[in-house]
């Protein structure tokens, strides 16, 4: 119940300020721009969204997800409202989950608003809609991972800008460290074991298989455990700051 109250307040706060709208508009413009230019959506003549559409999402999320998540705890700490939350009859987990789900909902709205592309492929061809749905799940999970990471960073600092920079770098690392062109260069210089360790931390393996329409348990577990670890870390930091 308390989680729902926090969730409602956070969500209202996103949509009563220009932040959420601005980010959603930038997201929609950039996904569409990538899909129709570099993604070769029309010329490829392929009725799947794997390469033309979903491939671009991690790149966009690594820049935009921290912008949604940066205020989650930094703002509370700077304004002192964390003292209100800390003395209300609710647990730290109520607040963490409420805030996290609110930020995730902003992205759910953004992803839902990309529906015209799904309508378009269905009009032009005969796509596998199950695979498209799995692709959307993959996008939401990548975004959820980046949001959880941003939330963890925001628990450390009162400064939103610091949070934005640090979490963007962290998210970018998770994108780059498994990207083929990048790992190929790295593997020339270092041992294969190191490269393998790096790719294990990257979102690509797991999001690519979902984009292809494969719903593998190992991918869901991977996303789930990273998100959970970040939320657990957030709770630990917030408690440590109060002891």
């Amino acid at each position: 119940m308390s989680t729902l109250t926090i969730y409602k307040r956070e969500l209202k706060s996103y949509f009563s300020q220009p932040t959420a709208y601005a980010i959603i508009v930038v997201f929609l413009l950039s996904t569409m721009a990538f899909t129709f230019t570099f993604g070769n959506f029309i010329r490829a003549g392929d009725a799947s969204l794997e390469w033309s559409f979903f491939f671009w999402h991690p790149w966009i999320f690594m820049l935009l997800a921290p912008a949604v998540g940066m205020r989650l705890w930094s703002d509370e700490q700077r304004n002192g409202t964390i003292e209100l939350l800390g003395t209300f009859p609710l647990t730290t987990w109520n607040a963490i989950l409420g805030k996290y789900l609110a930020a995730l909902s902003v992205w759910l709205v953004a992803l839902t608003l990309t529906f015209p592309i799904v309508v378009t492929v269905n009009y032009l061809g005969d796509p596998d809609n199950g695979a498209i749905l799995a692709g959307y799940l993959g996008s939401l999970l990548v975004c959820g991972t980046f949001l959880a990471l941003t939330m963890l960073v925001s628990a450390f600092t009162r400064d939103q800008v610091v949070c934005l920079i640090v979490s963007t770098i962290a998210c970018a690392l998770m994108v780059f460290c498994g990207y083929d062109d990048f790992t190929r260069e790295i593997s020339k210089a270092t041992s294969p074991a190191l490269v393998e360790a790096m790719t294990a931390l990257s979102v690509w393996d797991h999001s690519r298989s979902l984009d292809r329409g494969l719903l593998r348990l190992q991918d869901l577990v991977w996303f789930g455990s990273i998100i959970f670890a970040c939320l657990l870390g957030t709770s630990a930091i917030l408690s440590a700051k109060r002891s």
Binding site: R9, K12, S13, S16, Q17, N79, G80, T81, I82, E83, L84, T87
Partner: peptide, 11 residues
């Protein structure tokens, strides 16, 4: 009532 009287300014 905390000392700094913190509030959510957007509400």
């Amino acid at each position: 009532l905390p000392e700094s009287a913190p509030l959510y300014a957007d509400m």
